[in-house]
Write a protein that binds this DNA or RNA. Structure first.
Lengths: 205, 205
DNA sequence: TGTACATCAGTGAACGCGCGTTCACTGATGTAC
DNA sequence: TGTACATCAGTGAACGCGCGTTCACTGATGTAC
């Protein structure tokens, strides 16, 4: 099902419809959560009948897997791009943190699909783990490149430890914000986030 | 439906069945997530027919609301009890943090139901907000009682700011752990958590 | 340029399933005399 | 202590709904000669 002609006029059409399917799927997840993802509903929204979707997708679960992997890949790209920022490690890490936050808030459902409450009964494919490391890698690289002022470099263990703290602190703010748990609390999440980033990165050269 | 005889033999029986309904509901949420909560499934598990449950519960949504409020209340009790610890504010805050973690990991689905990805399409009752503050209050009180070494007290603003940082850092670790995102990562979550608690609390008297 | 043919996107009917909720009812249980 | 009665927990049938998925099919579209 997945791999058929991808060139010529038919191939172009296929890819176009396929990408609309994915788009509608995201809309549904955003509106009603991953467990409400429904092929029939997608088909209806696209003005088609449900069986037609099986030309583009192997099954409901397969679609969900594709969406999750796409989200991972998307975020990994964002992190890697930000890691390309010129300048010292500290600036790079700050850039990564900011890029992740922007992406997470723009794509709250995607972020929560990756790092939020696991979709019940759904088993992530092994590929997901690899992609999770791809997101994490630029952070570890950043901390490995520079140690606290004075030390030019970090040990791998220290870099790993700091990366974990970096990750959990950022996730703490982002996930609460993305899930809407700050509303009505007189919190400035952007400032809070910036402060948390600083807290991990402040003593780097 | 909700309020009927609660004394005498019939009342006792009612409360017993009622609490079994809630128990089974939690089991379901733990197994398949909040959106899979089903009255028919609960009834089946209890060896009853579904309509019988309407003696104990007004509707599916009402049951979900009760469960969420119960989780809030439970965690608030835990936090308040820990806040009763003898000694300086720093010890109290550490005790609160530890108690929250233990509760959150023992009741991962409950914790995620409160602080995780919102249940799609479900609107939390206003009462939930009040309970959320009840959980937060002991932390704020802890930070208000003592300032950084030297200062005997904190301003309310500073106490609030530190409480927020406390909260987001703890949530960062707990939520990732509860959702299983540390598995296969060679992380010691307990140590990481303890370090994060220290990071906020270290400079208190 | 025109025709025959193969490809393949999409349809419509059907399957078995589980859901929340209502309704009129049965029959056991507790209570009042 | 015994009987009549009210209470009320639980049943079974039924409703309309949406789900994933299969299957044989139609008919438009692109391609090869």
């Amino acid at each position: 099902v997945a791999e058929q002609t991808s060139t010529g006029p038919r191939g172009r059409y296929r890819q176009q419809v396929r990408s609309e399917v994915l788009e509608r799927a995201w809309e549904q997840i955003a509106a009603a959560g991953a467990s409400a993802l429904s092929l029939k509903a997608i088909a209806k929204q696209m003005g088609m009948t449900a069986p037609a979707l099986y030309r583009y997708v192997a099954s409901r679960d397969d679609l969900l897997t594709e969406l999750i992997l796409a989200a991972y890949r998307d975020l990994a790209d964002v992190a890697e791009t930000a890691a390309g920022t010129e300048g010292p490690a500290r600036a790079r890490l700050t850039a990564i943190a900011q890029a992740i936050r922007v992406w997470a808030l723009t794509n709250a459902h995607r972020y929560l699909l990756i790092y939020g409450t696991p979709v019940p009964g759904y088993q992530a494919p092994p590929e997901a783990t690899a992609l999770a490391s791809r997101i994490f890698a630029p952070v570890v690289a950043g901390f490995a490149a520079t140690g606290p002022a004075g030390d030019p470099r970090s040990s791998p263990e220290q870099a790993m430890r700091r990366s974990l703290v970096f990750w959990t602190r950022l996730h703490g703010v982002i996930s609460l914000e993305a899930a809407g748990h700050f509303t009505g609390m007189a919190v400035d999440p952007a400032r809070l986030y910036a402060g948390e980033v600083e807290s991990v990165v402040a003593d780097l050269r």
